[in-house]
Each structure stands twice: as structure tokens, then as C-alpha cells.
Amino acid sequence: MNGSDIIFYLLAAMTLVCGLLSVTTRQIFRAAIYLLFALIGVAGIYFWMEYEFIAAVQIVVYVGGIVVLIIFSIFLTQQAGEKMPRQRLDRKIFAALAVFCGFALTMVQVYKQVYYTSDAPAQTATVANIGKKMLNVNEEGYALPFEVISMLLLAAMVGCIVIAMRQKPDEQTAQPTEKTN
């Protein structure tokens, strides 16, 4: 076992332990923080694999975006520091069962998958290469999925604006000039 392995096992242990804690803790804010550390652990594994771009995107999107969003919604809705009620036993059992089934399914798929070794030269994951792949319209490019995903984001954005702009019926007549300034 060399240094690289040790780092991998440390990161994996951090991810797993934090993931487990985030579902078992009874304080919702702590759950969010444990989730954050689990996601950072995943980003660390990406760094360990030298996929820096994906690691950075993982941090930007999940840590800087989603976890902050979760924390904000906790701040705005929950009572400070109160413990959540203990879950019923049957719920716990079914949740554990569901998790186990999902895990088993994934592992079965992983073990059934036959991995081929390729003779093609390895491509380095530099930003330039990723960008070229992402916007390439040829057979090897990912322009179409990229655009489809951006359509999804656009739809989400339009939805946000619609929700934010929805006014009560009586307000519409009261403040018609609001949009112009």
C-alpha cells in the first residue's frame, strides 16, 4: 500500500462516514454540513484521479450551489437547533432495505460489466480538450446533450421567474407601473 492508496482510503472513508452521519443525525443543519463534507470527499477523489476540472465543477455546483441552497432553506424554515423526532422502526427498516437493494443493484451491475481495454491513445483531461469535446458537433462531440441540458436550465430559470413574478390578482391593478422602472 503506497501513499496514493492511503489517500484514496482516507477520502473514501471520509465520504462514507459523512454520508452515513448525514442520514443518521437528528439535527437537520448538521445533516447538511455532513452532506457537504461527503461531497467534498467526492471532489477530493476526483482530484486524486487528477480530473481537476470535474472536481472543481463538483465543488462549484454541489458545495457552492446546492448545499448553500439547502442551508438557506433550513435557515428560513426550521427552528434553530431543535432535534428532529426519532423515526419509527418500520420506516428505518424499509429505508435500510431500499438502500441495500439499490446498493446491491449497483454492485451487480458493476460486477457484470465487462471492461474492454482500448488501444486508443489516452486523452488528457485538460480544459481545452473538455471544451472541444463538449462543443463538437461531430460523432465524438457532445454538443447535442450539452444544448439539451442548457434547455433544461433555461426552463428552470423561466420557471423561477414565473414563480417570482406571480402577483396577487388585486395587486396587478394596483401597481401596473412596477415593471417599467
Binding site: 454540513i33 476540472f53 472543481a56 465543488i59 462549484v60 458545495v63 450551489g65 448553500v68 435557515f75 480544459v127
Partner: peptide
Amino acid sequence: NIGVLYVSAVSSIMVISIL
């Protein structure tokens, strides 16, 4: 090779410590 992106990514963790 992602120097600038790394900086903006990691600096977004800063807000977590404040929260």
C-alpha cells in the same frame, strides 16, 4: 491546469464556514 476555476470553486466553500 484549472487554476482560476479552482480558486473560484474553493472560495465558494468560504461561505459555508460563515453560515
